[in-house]
Simulated assay, not measured.
Amino acid sequence: MSSTTAPPWVIAEMSGSVLWLTLNRPGQRSPLSSQMINALQECLSAAAADSAVRCIVITGSGPAFSAGHDLREMTPQAGESDADCRARMQAILQACSRLMLGITESPKAVIACVQGVATAAGCQLVAACDLAIASEEARFCLPGVNIGAFCTTPLVAVGRNIHRKHAMELALTGDLFDAEDAVRMGLLNRVVPADRLRADTEALAQKIASKSAEGIARGKQAFYQQLNKPLAEAYSTTCEPMIDTMTTADAREGTQAFFDKRQPVWPQG
Rank of each mutant, 00 (worst) to 15 (best):
R164A: 01
L188H: 12
I162Y: 04
V158K: 03
S210E: 11
L170C: 07
Q206T: 14
D195S: 10
K207N: 02
T152Q: 04
E202N: 03
N161P: 02
G159H: 03
D178V: 10
D175K: 04
A205S: 07
R184N: 14
T153R: 05
L204N: 08
A205V: 06
R190D: 11
P154M: 04
A182E: 01
V156Y: 13
L188E: 11
D200I: 12
R164F: 01
N189H: 11
V156D: 12
A203F: 07
L188C: 13
R164K: 04
F177P: 03
G174L: 10
A157N: 13
A194K: 07
N161C: 12
H163M: 04
E202C: 11
V183D: 11
A157G: 08
L188Y: 13
K207S: 01
R164Q: 09
V192K: 05
L197F: 03
V158H: 02
H163E: 05
L187E: 05
A167R: 00
A209M: 13
R196H: 09
R198V: 09
D175M: 04
I208T: 12
H166C: 02
P193D: 06
L172D: 05
D181V: 03
V158S: 03
E202S: 07
R190Q: 13
R160Y: 00
K165G: 01
G174F: 09
P154Q: 04
D175T: 07
E169Q: 06
H166E: 04
V191S: 15
A205T: 05
D175R: 05
D181H: 11
V158A: 09
S210H: 08
T201Y: 02
H166D: 14
D200M: 09
V156R: 14
